[in-house]
């Protein structure tokens, strides 16, 4: 029996589930350091951006992120490829042995955009990173994505991230969110 609910999804169930599955797949690729496959999920004009957060008073007028604000990532495809090339050298000693990592994706919302074949996808990724001995690091990042149909597949064109930590809690971020 179906009852009409007083809330309407912005996209149909199929579309929603497609993006949910896609984000899970992306998380799995990042967990397993399948970076070539991950790169293939990105458009050529990908912008991968995570500004550095700061604590301002709510009434402070200067709090808006300005063009010359520091970032943790402000990468286009070339820079992402450079980071991945660094990992691929096998000369990054802090990643050997591998730091086991788990990306958990939640809070997924999917919205159509004004552009045909593009969707705005919101999500939260919680990263649990198992470091040397008993050390574990947990980081939570909100993501605001644009996904686009290209070459008959869905590709990530833009990812704006909010890093929800005033102080970065790990001595390196040798991974992606």
């Amino acid at each position: 029996m179906s009852q009409s609910l007083p809330f309407k999804n912005a996209v149909d169930a199929d579309t929603y589930q497609t993006f949910q599955t896609l984000l899970y797949k992306e998380a799995r690729l990042l967990d397993h350091e399948e970076y070539d496959q991950w790169l293939a999920m990105l458009t050529d004009d990908i912008h991968y951006y995570m500004p550095v957060p700061a604590r301002y008073l709510r009434e402070e007028k200067k709090q808006a992120i300005k063009p010359l604000d520091a970032n943790i990532f402000n990468d286009y495809k070339k820079q992402l490829e450079l980071r991945i090339a660094r990992f691929a050298t096998n000369l990054v000693w802090s990643e050997n042995p591998q730091n086991l990592i788990n990306h958990s994706v939640s809070n997924i919302e999917v919205f159509p955009t004004d552009v045909e074949g593009e969707w705005n996808v919101l999500s939260v990724v919680t990263v649990l990173r198992s470091r040397l001995d008993g050390v574990e690091k947990r980081m939570v990042v909100s993501r605001n994505d644009i996904w686009r149909i290209e070459d008959n597949s869905l590709k990530l064109a833009k990812r704006n991230m909010l890093f929800n930590h005033a102080v970065v809690p790990d001595s390196n971020l040798n991974f992606f969110f």
Partner: peptide, 12 residues
């Protein structure tokens, strides 16, 4: 930076 490719070699 925090995800800096040089800095991320030093911390550990």
């Amino acid at each position: 930076g925090a995800a800096g490719m040089f800095d991320n070699d030093d911390g550990e």
